[in-house]
Design a binder for these strands. Sequence first.
DNA 1: ACATCATTCAATATAATCATTGAATGACAG
DNA 2: CTGTCATTCAATGATTATATTGAATGATGT
Lengths: 221, 221
Amino acid sequence: MSIRNPKQKLYEQFAIVAKALGHPQRLELIEHLAQGPRSVEALAMKLGLPIANVSQHLQTLRRAGLVSAERDGKFVNYRLVDDSGLVAFASVRTVAEHHLAEVDRIVRGYFEARDDMEPVTRQELADRMRDGLVTVIDVRPPDEFALGHVPGAINVPLGDLPARLSEFGKDREVVAYCRGPWCVMSFEAVAALRSHGYAARRLADGMPEWRAAGMPVEVAA
Amino acid sequence: MSIRNPKQKLYEQFAIVAKALGHPQRLELIEHLAQGPRSVEALAMKLGLPIANVSQHLQTLRRAGLVSAERDGKFVNYRLVDDSGLVAFASVRTVAEHHLAEVDRIVRGYFEARDDMEPVTRQELADRMRDGLVTVIDVRPPDEFALGHVPGAINVPLGDLPARLSEFGKDREVVAYCRGPWCVMSFEAVAALRSHGYAARRLADGMPEWRAAGMPVEVAA
DNA sequence: ACATCATTCAATATAATCATTGAATGACAG
DNA sequence: CTGTCATTCAATGATTATATTGAATGATGT
């Protein structure tokens, strides 16, 4: 039996955090919780997973200090304890973006040409919105939109997009955003818009990053 | 059989990176590689692990895009591909520091009073060194010291410390640093120095962070 | 060609993680 | 008190990660 010295014990603690981030569905849970607090059931619905399974993943995240739980009547609401989990997620994502060829391959699947996938930066979007040059659409579900969105953005859940194409002019660029830098709904929205002849691009990241950058956020009344 | 959509595929890629960070000994490997490139054997020696085991861990890190390998004669030298892996490690560490009680407990084990463990910041150390107020010791092994150290620091490997206590004056504060923010050698050095009546503190982080901050680095001739 | 050395590979046993199921808990409403 | 509902727990098999061993590979020097 190996004696574990303090160094190893410390590293084991760090590894607990990294391990908690090391499962695709826990990452998805973090992304959803970044939109706002949610009950176990709500999260299970969003991910399309059994409740017991989600409950266990949430407890793994809690043991890693990433989320906290608070009981509210029959429900238990989970939330991110602070931004540090998102920062860790973002830095992991950065490694994958820069060094895993597979990520490139997946993203490229959405677009014909490489320059088509160049996203709009936060600042660029803010400037162009001020000048009235763009239509901004938030492709998340209405409940997430209600918890906070880019001022002036229209809520067009991805499923509704085909039926609502006529709302947009082909002369104005449409910028789509959703939950985060790699939330695929905005990729799909842009791909759909383009296939119908609209000029469309993605915002480089999503709502939590917009909020974290100190940009104005509009909340439903 | 589940069909994996692009969203899930993306998250699986991110999870590969996080999973690679999710093992204590792989984190230790990263910390060592942050000092400079190393062969498999050299790393195995430093960690005290079988070579085949280290080789496999390194390949996990390579598949995650964190390290790269280059053959040099009989040896294969591994190195961090860039700083992004260290950034990810640092952000994972931040979560653990802030939210895992166990980390606090381990660190506290080295010190009697809480304020005794307050570390010296990089800038504070630079200022006080300029004024000639402190003795700086680098407690890493000589080979790591040779690859780059704080200018003016004395190399006192942890094992040699007891025999070399007389080199320091009890009127000058001694600042110890090693491989990174949680490299326990500096904790142990400070604890040892204090138990012999010296005024000692730790640098808040280690060599890689000092270098990354653009501070001057001295390399052995 | 041969021996040597660093590394990787392949095979194995062990351990940890994961998804699923059904039962237990804790809160609320009647 | 009873029934209902959200969540957690406990137990299970299935999958995956890990450590260990010994053999295979690839480069070097004689």
